[in-house]
């Protein structure tokens, strides 16, 4: 990847990404620093005031009152407010995935691939630390940063488990499930800074199979009437629309619209020889030239009551 320009690397997607030249130009800019203010420990007003008094330039993000873009900050992990858990450095698109799932206080929520815990702690924040979150990750070493972040951010409603997500035990059903799967992470690529992209085609193209298994298991863990959110930080339709299509073909699942007012593109109608179910266009594709953050794919899926 390091030897390829964005135009070269992403050329297979040139016909599906709107305004492809603008997309490629955007990739030469560094990723912006977004801060999610953690209202479990301090109010947005308190944290904002404290940071602005010290000269930080904070721009509110449209429609998301808990997220600010810091334009003159490069290392948010050095802020005292970070250590105290008053904020978390988190991509805007990651926050959107939690908001799109929309857990309520009192819900039973599963975060199937939870580490390092940024999205889990956001779910706890949205649930006001009420109800129950089960945060699972299959790798014990990835539970260390998960536990650390949950403690720092003051999360009190979460139990952590360590199972392969595709074999998660079916002993409890959940109202909401976040399925933020391992992916090729193309959406994190910015030409200047990030060269450690995992190559899906060099890894034997195993990711879509794993993603499909994770999504199927997540659906089986939903309460009737429950909702899951499938997300990746990649543009590859094989890891996105094709995985959701597979779910629709194998389970009584229904894609739902995401009711947030933010720039995005719809899910694809077609990729290679596959024509997708029309409802997949209700999925979101987040491109950095439309919304300056990590590229993302979101699918909100309901299990009928």
């Amino acid at each position: 990847m390091t030897n390829q320009t964005p135009e070269q690397y992403f050329s297979p997607y040139s016909h599906i990404i709107p305004d492809f030249p603008a997309f490629c130009r955007k990739l030469s800019n560094p990723l912006p620093v977004h801060l999610r203010f953690n209202t479990l420990k301090a109010t947005v007003k308190q944290t904002r005031l404290r940071l602005e008094r010290r000269g930080l330039n904070l721009l509110p993000e449209k429609s998301i009152s808990i997220v600010f873009r810091a334009t003159n900050l490069t290392q948010p992990g050095h802020l005292i407010e970070f250590s105290l858990g008053h904020l978390h450095s988190q991509a805007l698109s990651s926050v959107i995935s939690g908001l799109a799932l929309g857990p309520k206080p009192g819900d039973a929520v599963l975060d199937l691939c939870a580490a390092p815990g940024g999205k889990t702690s956001l779910l706890a924040q949205l649930m006001e630390n009420r109800g129950l979150i089960v945060a699972n990750d299959r790798y014990p070493n990835r539970l260390i940063p998960l536990h650390s972040n949950l403690k720092r951010l003051g999360v009190t409603n979460t139990v952590t488990l360590c199972y392969p997500g595709q074999h998660f035990p079916k002993r409890l059903r959940f109202d909401r499930i976040l399925v933020d799967v391992p992916c090729s992470a193309e959406g994190t690529l910015r030409a200047a800074a990030n060269s450690n992209i995992r190559q899906p085609y060099q890894s034997g193209n195993k990711l879509p199979g794993l993603q499909r298994d994770l999504l199927l298991r997540a659906f089986d863990l939903l309460e009737p009437g429950g909702t899951l959110l499938y997300s990746t930080c990649t543009y590859n339709p094989d890891e996105n629309e094709s995985v959701v299509q597979s779910l629709l073909e194998n389970r009584p699942a229904k894609v739902q619209p995401i009711s947030l007012d933010l720039p995005h593109s719809p899910g694809l109608e077609q990729w290679k020889e596959i024509t997708y179910d029309a409802t997949i266009q209700q999925c979101w594709r987040i491109y950095p030239h439309q919304l300056d953050t990590v590229g993302f794919f979101l699918a909100r899926v309901a299990r009928e009551a």
Binding site: L143, V155, R171, L172
Partner: peptide
């Protein structure tokens, strides 16, 4: 719902 988790391999609980 916590009793449903009792037989699972729980790593940590709360804060």
């Amino acid at each position: 719902r916590l009793p449903s988790l009792a037989s699972l391999r729980v790593q940590t609980v709360g804060l």
